[in-house]
Amino acid sequence: MIEGNDLSAARKRLAAQQAELLNALLAKGPVPTGFDEQRIAVERRALLSKRRGIARMLGPAVADELGDRFRPLFDAYAVENPRRAGSRAREDAAAFAEWCRASGELSVNRKARWKFWQSN
């Protein structure tokens, strides 16, 4: 689709604004001019909390093994690894588990030795 010059210029300006905001919220970027720092902090926490909740839901075993360490570890991981556009929530949860293994926080093989004594 061919767009007018005005529109593509508007897209460019908007892209810069939005990228700056997400960078501040997700990747420790500076707070863009005109925004309330406290509000940015609130939003940052809310986004992190939502992302953490989804990772917990998609990887309960990891969260379970980490116990109380889950939250601080996830928060450290998240700021180092903001979610890339186009990535999936499941990939995020998997990448977090991988990150934990790489830093020795999670046992390397969680392939459950699922031994059921008897179930039927």
Partner: peptide, 9 residues
């Protein structure tokens, strides 16, 4: 751990 729910892109 995969719950069959949601996720999605």
């Amino acid at each position: 751990s995969s719950s069959s729910c949601s996720s999605s892109g």
